[in-house]
Write a protein that binds this DNA or RNA. Structure first.
Lengths: 117, 117
DNA sequence: CTGTCGTACTACGTCTGGCGTAGTAAAAGT
DNA sequence: ACTTTTACTACGCCAGACGTAGTACGACAG
């Protein structure tokens, strides 16, 4: 029942990833775990979605990659957010508010209250 | 500045259309105007998006089409929502609440307050 | 009575993001 | 020694949105 269709999230995977990169550079596996934790398992990003988001965002100049010199553990590709990335993130936040406002016009509150379906 | 990217709305165009059909059968042009009005011009659905949504939803059994016998004016294709369509609409409303909850975790409130970008 | 605007669509093709499937490989746990 | 976890890459498909274009009828102005 409570799975989120990907079409809804579409366009916000990038935002989620950038949200964590705002704080500090990170890499795929860590971010995927953070998303899972923050959403209390309500949303789990697919690996392919995650890594293709990285490539796309690097191409767009929102993030830059660098290789880690790990003393121990596996070698990872880290990503750092750019100024353009911060701008893009802020834009998406503003857009989200607008979108929320728009969509909410079409949501029937009553249907939700008595969960009748 | 304040245009909504289609990727965000994606998956909710159907919901918007069904929202109006809940009340009474309607047709393309009327619905497109109603969406524009209800959202105060914040969102205007593209014609191709609208009509392809009709075909898709009819194929899925959410709506059924019938021809109008207009005494005057142009002939139109009307659509009526089905029980399955109502169910689908209710599902989408519930899904929306979940999605909102999830995405909001990643939205920085401060960025929004001082609109700094 | 002619041209333009509003109404009401259909057809076709492209793009993008998400995701299924599969495979690789090193480190860490048992 | 084997399995699990970590950390990816490659390939290809699919669906929804949308650009472009064209059709056609009615109303209304000049």
């Amino acid at each position: 029942m409570n799975t989120i269709s990907s079409d809804v999230i579409r366009g916000y995977n990038d935002t989620m990833i950038l949200f964590f990169l705002l704080e500090k550079p990170s890499y795929g596996y860590e971010i995927s775990k953070q998303i899972k934790t923050l959403t209390k398992e309500k949303y789990v990003i697919k690996e392919t979605t995650l890594y293709s988001a990285f490539t796309r965002m690097e191409k767009n100049g929102y993030i830059v990659s660098f290789s880690s010199d790990e003393e121990s553990g596996k070698r990872r590709t880290y990503y750092r957010i750019t100024d353009l990335g911060r701008e893009y993130y802020a834009q998406k936040c503003a857009e989200w508010n607008l979108t929320k406002e728009v969509i909410e016009n079409f949501i029937d509150k009553e249907v939700l209250q008595n969960g009748s379906y």
